[in-house]
């Protein structure tokens, strides 16, 4: 277990900053998710922490010690790659034993550790196979077993679930979280999938254009986004944003309700909505509409329960409202949240 920290970490590729001055403190035993759209610099950041990429400036610290000049092998971290990066010429057992051999451990102790790691992911019966004889889910487990076998101080995971099909993914997510909780090893996890990030992370760092826009718990990031990028990147459908004068007002679709659904004694902000389309999604309805004058004609979405109460139909003009305490305000010029 260890803390990881980056200080003013920068990486330029051909004059373009892929990572643009990131200060990221990762706590001991924490599951930290780096979340962002593709090209936001999250993988480059992870690779600099791993030592696979040399920073243009700034430092990486493990347990308070600067490791920036050290090669990957001297950082005692384990990494799971998006492609799993299993060694095709070795059996599963040799794949798992590979990091042990690299550190000079052989014989009975190594064999026992391989057994234990394999048991942790229930892949004992696969030990004699080669990677090409495994399914995607099995490969992912082998990659994880190879990562834990050496008992590293930090796990780095680069979109490890993105090659799995949707069904397998939720099971794998569950398993991943369980094993991280059990080992208590500091984990940094890169993904572009916000459901993964919300479900797995103790804290999430939302990145875009090489900068951290918001670092916080999933709850904080969803409820109180630091700026309009985070507000619209997190949540599906995203936060509604309404521009008035020099302020942007934001509210989540599920907080945007017909006026009759809100208690009369609570302070609310009213909006008149021209309903464009109602989408039925089983448990929910999504109501797409445009705000009526005097507000600018912003397109907004409301998420309502699918039941027969609160009838809303296409083409009608309906009074909607949001509780005052659910409104968030952002500066129009900078996009930052204002109170």
């Amino acid at each position: 277990m260890a803390t990881v920290e980056t200080r003013a970490l920068r990486k330029r590729f051909d004059g373009v900053a892929a990572v643009d001055g990131i200060d990221l403190p990762v706590r001991e035993g924490e599951f930290l998710v780096l979340l962002g759209p593709s090209g936001c610099g999250k993988t480059t950041l992870l690779r600099m922490i791993a030592g696979l990429e040399t920073p243009s400036s700034g430092d990486v610290l493990i347990d308070g010690r600067v490791v920036t000049p050290l090669p990957p092998r001297e950082r005692n971290m384990a990494m799971v790659f998006q492609s799993y990066a299993l060694y095709p010429h070795l059996t599963v057992a040799d794949n798992i034993a590979f990091p042990l051999k690299a550190h000079g451990m052989r014989g009975a102790e190594a064999a026992e550790r391989v057994q234990r790691a394999a048991a942790m992911f229930s892949i004992e019966r696969l030990l004699k196979r080669k990677p090409r004889q495994l399914s995607g889910g099995e490969r992912q487990r082998v990659a994880l077993a190879r990562a834990v076998v050496r008992e590293p101080v930090v796990f780095l995971l680069d979109e490890p679930l993105s090659n799995l099909d949707a069904q397998l993914r939720s099971a794998a997510r569950d398993e991943l979280q369980q094993f991280q909780r059990r080992l208590g090893t500091t984990t940094i996890y890169v993904t572009h999938d916000q459901i993964e990030a919300m479900g797995l992370g103790d804290r999430i760092a939302v990145l875009d254009h090489g900068r951290i826009h918001h670092l916080g718990t999933p709850r904080e990031i969803y409820a109180d986004p630091a700026d309009t990028f985070v507000a619209t990147f997190i949540g599906s459908p995203p936060m509604n944003l309404v521009e008035t004068d020099d302020i942007i007002t934001g509210f989540r679709p599920e907080q945007f309700m017909p006026i009759e659904a809100l208690p009369a004694d609570e302070p609310v902000r009213r909006f008149t909505l021209d309903v464009g389309r109602v989408e039925y999604l089983g448990a929910d309805r999504l109501v797409y509409g445009t705000l009526a004058p005097p507000l600018p004609p912003s397109r907004v979405i409301a998420r309502l329960p699918a039941g027969p109460e609160l009838p809303v139909s296409t083409g009608e003009r309906h009074e909607f409202a949001v509780r005052e305490r659910d409104l968030r305000h952002f500066d129009r010029a900078s996009g930052r949240r204002v109170n």
Partner: peptide
């Protein structure tokens, strides 16, 4: 990736080349 995996697993770049690239 597999070269970098070998480097994470404890080999130098040259070690990774000998242990992973050459056999493949």
């Amino acid at each position: 990736d597999i070269e970098e995996a070998a480097m994470m697993d404890g080999y130098s770049r040259f070690g990774a080349f000998l242990k992973v690239v050459v056999p493949n």
